[in-house]
Amino acid sequence: MAQTHTAEEVRKHVRVYLMVFGALAVLTVVTVAVGYLHLPIVPALVVGLLIASVKAGLVAAYFMHLVSERKVIYGVLIMTGLFLLAMFILFISAYADQDGGLIVS
């Protein structure tokens, strides 16, 4: 977010924060309601993580000001995403290769 803020801008932001809070509260209720539907694991996982991602996106975008942040912060986040992906790929590779046949034949 910019370094200088006029009072009017800040008040506008506050309205956005309150709307985001409303959206997060509604999505939490939806998450719990979907949980009680007892869907099979795959659709439950997809729906659950989808709603969680939307909520996390709202928190990151508005509360953490990522909608209007500097390039260097986006750079840090892109690198974090890549390293996280690399770690997941390592775990998945290890899981897929439990008998050791894939890499050492």
């Binding site: 998450t31 949980g35 439950a44 993580l49 990151a60 509360f63 953490m64």
Partner: peptide, 22 residues
Amino acid sequence: AGLYWHFVDLVWIFLFPTIYLL
């Protein structure tokens, strides 16, 4: 301090459905 606090909230947003509901 807020950035950190929101991150803690964000972690819980993922923990709650994965641990309690799935």
